[in-house]
């Protein structure tokens, strides 16, 4: 048993050295409207030439898990990242259909969206046991020290899942990535703007260095 495990580790290491390591399942977690789908779209458009999900200012636009398979990213220093990206619905502790109605949705549409949103949160939590690594996406213009962020990071720590915190939306005038670094000093933080593409190369390099 032990010998078989050692052999597996050797093969894994050899595969990694040869650049043959299997694709990682990279989950995108974070609160609602942090820009997870915008980031997934940025990566998918840049490397696969297609968009994966609709983006909207209405909360809970992503209500089902979206998988982008076989993404190959070549970094500036020549490394090739092979990954399946899993864009999760945003994690929330409350879903009130009236919020959606305030964006102009009908009562029925709002209630249906709320129902789907709650299912999406449950699915995202279930998937914590199926990802190899995670990008925790946060809106750098918001207070990072929320219970949702603390719970996501605490769960990843408890499961031993490697993560990078993505301080997104740094193109906004009130963005403060330093606030995120201060709130979670024990983790790698990469500041980007998924909507403009700023610092995407730094993110790819960080994934290669810390998550593969």
């Amino acid at each position: 048993m032990f010998g078989r495990f050692t052999k597996y580790l050797r093969l894994e290491r050899l595969a990694k050295l040869l650049g043959m390591r299997k694709q990682i399942q990279l989950g995108f977690y974070g609160p609602v409207n942090a820009g997870k789908t915008t980031l997934a779209n940025r990566i998918s458009i840049d490397w696969l030439g297609k968009e994966v999900g609709k983006v909207s200012e209405i909360p809970h636009e992503t209500r089902t898990i979206q998988k982008i398979e076989n993404v190959e990213v070549t970094t500036n220093n020549g490394h090739v990242l092979r990954m399946n990206i899993i864009d999760m619905p945003g994690i929330a502790t409350q879903v009130d259909y009236k919020t959606f109605a305030s964006y102009g949705l009908t009562l029925e549409e709002s209630k249906e969206r709320a129902k789907e949103a709650t299912k999406g949160v449950i699915e995202a939590i279930k998937w914590l046991d199926n990802v190899d690594a995670v990008l925790v996406v946060m809106d750098a213009s918001e207070d990072p020290y929320t219970q949702v962020n603390v719970t996501i990071i605490g769960n990843l720590e408890a499961r031993g899942i490697p993560m990078i915190i993505v301080a997104n939306k740094i193109d906004l005038p009130n963005a403060s990535p330093a606030g995120i670094e201060g709130a979670f000093p024990q983790h790698v933080v990469v500041s980007i703007s998924a909507s403009t593409g700023l610092n995407m190369e730094k993110l790819y390099e960080a994934i290669q260095e810390h998550l593969t």
Partner: peptide, 27 residues
């Protein structure tokens, strides 16, 4: 614990209804 917090969020989502209960705040 963090796992219990995740379970609390999932359990809350299962209980949410349009009429009375819209979720929780916790810290």
């Amino acid at each position: 614990s963090p796992r219990e917090e995740a379970e609390l969020i999932a359990a809350t989502m299962r209980e949410i209804d349009a009429r009375d209960f819209h979720g929780i705040e916790f810290y």
